[in-house]
Design a protein around this nucleic acid. Sequence first.
DNA 1: CCTCGTATAATTGTATACAATCATACGAGG
DNA 2: CCTCGTATGATTGTATACAATTATACGAGG
Lengths: 235, 235
Amino acid sequence: MSSYDVKQEVTDKYSLRGRVFHKLRDDILNGKYEEHEELKEVTIGEELGVSRTPVREAFRQLELEGLIQIIPNKGAYVTGITEKDVKDIYMIRSLLEGLCARWATEHITKEQLEEMEENVYLAKFHASKGHMEQIAELDNRFHEILYEACNSKMLEHQLRDFHAYVLRVRRKTLANQVRGAASNEEHEKIMEAIKAGDADGAEKLAHLHMINAYENMGKTGLHEVYENNRTISET
Amino acid sequence: MSSYDVKQEVTDKYSLRGRVFHKLRDDILNGKYEEHEELKEVTIGEELGVSRTPVREAFRQLELEGLIQIIPNKGAYVTGITEKDVKDIYMIRSLLEGLCARWATEHITKEQLEEMEENVYLAKFHASKGHMEQIAELDNRFHEILYEACNSKMLEHQLRDFHAYVLRVRRKTLANQVRGAASNEEHEKIMEAIKAGDADGAEKLAHLHMINAYENMGKTGLHEVYENNRTISET
DNA sequence: CCTCGTATAATTGTATACAATCATACGAGG
DNA sequence: CCTCGTATGATTGTATACAATTATACGAGG
């Protein structure tokens, strides 16, 4: 295994900067801040007990993620995430996950396919037992495998970003046991298409999988997640 | 006009950090560095006459853009961009530009449509005169208008990123006069579909527009752009 | 000769000091 | 009373100093 194979989180969680980054990101996604609220470097630093340096670096990253907007020499302002944003992300993801499944069909390795089968099998077990935490974990992993299997650094990168973006929302969704089982069945169908080398089928199924996830979320998850978040009223 | 309407480049170009960011980004995209080459904060800083602080901040952003990989306490390593990456981006963009055109059909304002008409008209003029620089500029702007018109912060953000990513490649491509004219004709068709409220048509045409742009690039532009870039040999 | 541990150097991570810029308040002038 | 300019404070931008971590070299021990 070459050193290039080392998988690295985009931002490490154990540096001060990493902690600031993840904290702020979670807080913003959770709606702790108002839209357009100003984030001051010293204030955030004091709250987390760190200096301005790691805070500033975290700000730069959050800006690229689109969560805050930095106006030079002025300040950092929260962009927030609205219900419409989530919907848009799912629409975008539905296209990209489809493309990902298509490419995965063409490039998946034997090892990845085996892990996928194990994943689906395990998820079926946990679904029957109602182990929601494990199901969420396996669901994450299933998509990760797809991302890795598509053999496209660019697409993998994009999807991972989006995935993280809606992770919180999605986890809530899967807490719905019925959807958890249905979701896994869709995973299985996608896997079967990939196994059969049916790229068109895999693309369509992955696309549908995202639509279903969103539709279900609209019915059960979205409201809870964004309660106490005033941005919801604006969509 | 509310303060929220202020359009701001994602990273300002006039701070030291901004300059470092854009310089490194250009250098990486131009293939100045080997893949996996290590970037040292002090070295880069000395070359540009700045301290480590702005360099570090630029590094964090480049990491999120996927151009370098930072291993904590170790170093920053160039990821590079291969010919396959460019191809993947065009495939991804072809989907997203399609979606963008669809949404733009539903949300475009009168002012945006007017600017778009002016854009196409002007481009036709410059194409007849062979003013390549202006054509490239107008082509940029046409897509920018589409991004703004789609009324989706998320999609706009994504497409802007990709657009910037392949800007260098695309500019070279448009230097081909024939393609410049053909590209503008495609713009016009997309605009007509949007004007007619034909979302399906707009989506299909925008999709095709990207495919054509890529195909043409494969024939004329890509090689020139990546000559002297060893990453090309890996694809 | 090889292996392992320690010392040393190089590099990144963080904190702080200082410079530049922007926002606000206040007062002079009309 | 209003307007504009200036002074002051607050905040960001950058440089530097110091701490922590990692890589390398070298020598002791087997």
